[in-house]
Design a protein around this nucleic acid. Structure first.
Lengths: 187, 187
DNA sequence: CGTTTTTTTTGCCTTATATCAAAAAATCAC
DNA sequence: GTGATTTTTTGATATAAGGCAAAAAAAACG
């Protein structure tokens, strides 16, 4: 069974039939490593559900890029601000490896939300969870230093050792060399 | 008209009647400066709507406290994690000055959500906005230094000059003395 | 008002992290 | 496998921010 199907089921707590309706509304799409699902400046018109691979969200500032999030199988995401306001996205979405994502566009999503309470729940829970996670992140930035922050992420994210340092360090909020040194002192 | 009434109206986009139903479900409560609406370790069972004054959310770590958020008139908040899971709160909620808040408890809120789509929209928008704001916050921590972060908050929050440094500095993610120096160099 | 308490500023010194650049190591492509 | 490319580590040095404590300023209180 598709990872995403299970994820939808567990998040929405809907019946198999309702979950199937949601799943059938998604369009499967494959993305090659390095390909973009969204480039900054464009409007984000879709919700993405990661089935396979890994997807990185990042923003750029002064020629540098900063990882906002790395999505792995079972996870759901969008650039919420751009999606809701139809405003220009300030973030990029790019596949870290060959990936499979399921996609639903806003028109279709809104239609589905009208008739499926289960889908509504799914979207609500997704935002709620994302909010709670972000909150912890902020608290970490406020009260912890880099090494502690690294350890915390380490515990929660299995991708932390899987991808190049440069993608991870900015997520933690440090430079590449600092992260390298943090790792060195842990050995 | 109550600040909160206007805020509910604008956020939910509901009809005057629907908005009134929501407003009538809230219980007005006054809080003295320094009083707690929630202490860590307890379960957060309510949504709060700020009518007057200012409410600070903060967490503690190693004897120090860190401001998570300062809520001002028209704003809605809760400790979402504790509220949703009925888990012990890791944050405290305290009035920064004599304040008036409207309150709804979870049971009542859930009941209202069942029947009022407008209320649902209100809650959804509230979380969505909070998420988008937090995202910006995180991006700021990742890519900006303290002074820039201060300037950003300065533009958005009128309370930044109104309350003691200690409440503001931890929000920005610096110590009190650092914030004092940041301010000094801006004169 | 004058006194007490709280808040803010400032000096001195330390530590965490950034910056820049080069070397080392790992990975990729043919 | 071997050379090219990318990634990681490391060194030297600079800068941002912290820690501590005392002085100065502001606010609260009787």
């Amino acid at each position: 069974m598709a990872v995403i199907l299970a994820s939808i089921k567990s998040l929405s707590q809907g019946s198999p039939e309702e979950v199937q309706v949601i799943f059938d509304s998604l369009k499967k799409s494959t993305v090659e490593k390095g390909a973009y699902l969204l480039k900054e400046g464009r409007i984000c018109t879709q919700y993405y559900f990661v089935e396979e691979g890994a997807i990185r969200l990042f923003f750029t500032k002064d020629e540098l890029d900063y990882t906002v999030w790395i999505g792995t199988p079972g996870e759901v995401f969008t650039n919420l601000e751009s999606y809701l306001d139809a405003s220009k996205s300030n973030i990029n979405i790019q596949a870290l490896e060959n990936s499979i994502v399921y996609v639903i566009n806003k028109a279709e999503s809104d239609r589905l939300a009208e008739k499926s309470n289960t889908y509504n729940t799914l979207l609500r829970k997704t935002v709620e969870m994302a909010f709670i996670n972000l909150s912890k992140n902020v608290m970490s930035f406020q009260s912890e230093e880099a090494a502690e922050r690294y350890n915390r992420v380490m515990k929660e994210k299995n991708w932390i050792l899987k991808y190049p340092l440069k993608y991870i360090s900015t997520f933690i909020g440090v430079t590449q060399s600092t992260l390298s040194r943090i790792r060195a002192t842990k050995k």
